[in-house]
Design a binder for these strands. Sequence first.
DNA 1: AACCCCCCCAACCGCGAAGCG
DNA 2: TCGCTTCGCGGTTGGGGGGGT
Length: 310
Amino acid sequence: MRLAMSSSSKSASSSSEDEGELRRGPWTLEEDTLLTQDIACHGEGRWNLVAKRSGLKRTGKSCRLRWLNYLKPDVKRGNLTPQEQILILELHSKWGNRWSKIAQHLPGRTDNEIKNYWRTRVQKQARHLKMDSNSATFQDIIRYVWMPRLLQKIGGSSSSSSLSLPQRTVLPQPLNMHTQNLSSQHISPQPHVPSLNQSLFIQQENNSSSEKSTSPSSSIQTFRMSQVPQIISEYPTSPYSTMVNGDYNTMYTTCYNDMENFSLTSDTASGCIKNPMGYCHVVENNWFGGDLVDGMGNMDEFWQQFWNMQ
DNA sequence: AACCCCCCCAACCGCGAAGCG
DNA sequence: TCGCTTCGCGGTTGGGGGGGT
């Protein structure tokens, strides 16, 4: 606990805070009550005044933060719903780290909470992928992996959602044209929700296997994830076809050749491969446990399964 | 049971913007 | 216009707790 101000702390006292020691650290129930009562009587704002008037040995700043992030009645507690997560991902791609602006579109959620979500969940995955979370490649992963996964969760949930996506939300929609090919599959995607495999993986028909991972001059084709839909639609008979024929023994290797590009190859080996061009992930076809609709409690679980495949 | 490690999130900090006399 | 105060934002920190060994 760091309730008392440590003597080494620098900006402990500023201007009008000389009388008595300022408290820091976690708020007590008594402090919460004092603050809540004061705001109930006098309203928000003039936070330094609130701090003095209520008798709290806190800075106005601290009072404001406590109220806005915790005590305010409409602050929503608990985990972010998939809908909220999608909204955050989408709005962040649009506005970057404008947390308060993003928070305005999530009623009851604070900028602090959204910022924490981004740092602890999203940036963590970027770190694992050895990517900059702002890189185009990682943005593509969010759009073509993460968001479809969340959409599946929403679509797969029978409960009605209280938060609907705004009209402008651009849903990931690669490869919808292949949905009809799934009729014989165990995969049963929700309407308009491409399955993860559909979204991401394309299979190389001539399996030239292991040397791909060691020779940068092999037939690896490199493209951005966002190009996948176009590539497939433009070259339906190319060496690549969508992975819809259910060869569940095939291993897939996703090779990130650099920060901006990646290539997709197939391989029969398992494990993690380093190739001279960069970092490779070997992903088993059934890395999602077979049925894409079932069993994914949350995105952490999703990523957990992803990394367990490494 | 004890210890360690890591993650989460509440709270803090610095700084620039806005407001005001 | 200036200087002071207040507000609000984004980045960072570190305590608590859960999970693993």
